[in-house]
Design a binder for these strands. Structure first.
Lengths: 213, 213
DNA sequence: CGTAGTCTTGAGTATCCTCAACGAGGGTGG
DNA sequence: CCACCCTCGTTGAGGATACTCAAGACTACG
């Protein structure tokens, strides 16, 4: 029952001149899309599924910098090498790659494309700033609550109450800077307070959104 | 690990066509540059001093999303309203404001400006991602250490060892998501370990950079 | 020189992490 | 089809870390 709707919803927003040379690639769970130190030679668009941008600290801890959902762009960088790894979280994650040179050449001649790229970069900035606010929350409960609200907002379903959390609890922990156990405990507390309802481990229904924030 | 600070890369070579209509404004300590809910009608460039981008949570806690040093651009947004406040931290902070419409019109006709704006947005993305990694650090010591390293890198002095931390400990605490007391304690511990040397409250000399990370 | 804001230090407490064990689900091979 | 394994998720106990509250020292500035 993987959501296919968002792909259709966002695909058509791209200018035809851009879509023409997007290289669509389906990925398996865990498959790497790019790695640290790779050359920055493409920009990417998530068509379906979920991807995670992460890095590993010297002490072995992994930090997830960003989750990428359908409609998100990623891979923006003014540098020559990647700072992070990006992997598909689920089977059936589909991304389109846009060769950087061609895309920038297109932006040079097509002002709509240039504007789109600017807007997409600005969207990324907004997302990361929101992310920083989540990390700035004090308690684990607040962090997990804010995370759920963020994911509800970003899931492109019309209903904001049902969230499909395809990522694992470990991913969530590495995203929020908490231990898996703390994430798990926060979830059960939220459930007992009847703020959320868990149906299986990954389908979550939000009952009282205002309490989460 | 990262490329040079944006200050070095862009600070002194804005295209003449852009500089022509930048509105230069000196600010006093604490003076607001823009506020939440303000219309997004300008982009900004820090010329000197220091600014902070922040928001206040419903529980009254302030979170600083970004410090802005000379050379940084800010105010990028694809939205209509601001999500954050930006204030000058020190007297003598000077920023240049670029009216959004004029700047975007210029970008439409001047591909160098268009590229510059893209690159600047990408720089902001890199900075925010680095920021997320700092917040993801586990202990307060690591956070403060990583903060000092970040500020050393971004200060546009050639010497990377002497940092002028013009912001208060409160600002640092709100930036790192710690209490002021914890920041203060971390500083004294780092000093006792002879990783840093404090001369006055705001001038810091880094003795052993590698230990901070 | 006084005052307000800033910085540091201390004591006690709450929160979260670590370590450990166990249960549930999915995939694989016999 | 079932047994097994492996990953994932949950729960518990104990300990470390950072927060809160409180007080005192220092600084900048009028």
């Amino acid at each position: 029952m993987e959501d296919l709707a968002p792909a259709a919803a966002y695909g058509h927003k791209l200018p035809a001149a851009m879509q023409a040379f997007g290289i669509v690639t389906p990925c398996r769970r865990g498959q790497q899309i790019y790695a640290r130190e790779d050359p920055v030679d493409s920009w990417y668009h998530v068509i379906s599924g979920l991807a995670r941008k992460s890095t590993v600290f010297s002490d072995g801890r992994r930090r997830i910098v960003d989750f990428l959902v359908p409609g998100d762009f990623f891979g923006f960088s003014a540098r020559r090498e990647r700072d992070f790894d990006v992997e598909a979280v689920t089977d059936g994650t589909v991304v389109a790659a846009f060769p950087r040179r061609r895309l920038e050449a297109l932006a040079d001649t097509d002002r709509d494309v240039a504007r789109l790229l600017r807007d997409l970069a600005c969207e990324t900035i907004s997302r990361l700033q929101g992310r920083i606010l989540i990390l700035g929350r004090v308690t684990a409960m607040k962090k997990v609550g804010a995370f759920l609200v963020e994911m509800a907002r970003r899931s492109h379903d019309a209903t904001v109450v049902d969230i499909m959390l395809t990522m694992s609890r470990y991913d969530i922990a590495d995203y929020l800077g908490l231990s898996v156990e703390t994430v798990s405990r926060a979830m059960t507390v939220l459930q007992h307070r009847r703020c959320i309802e868990l149906r299986g481990n990954h389908l979550i229904k939000i009952l009282r959104l205002e309490e989460l924030d």
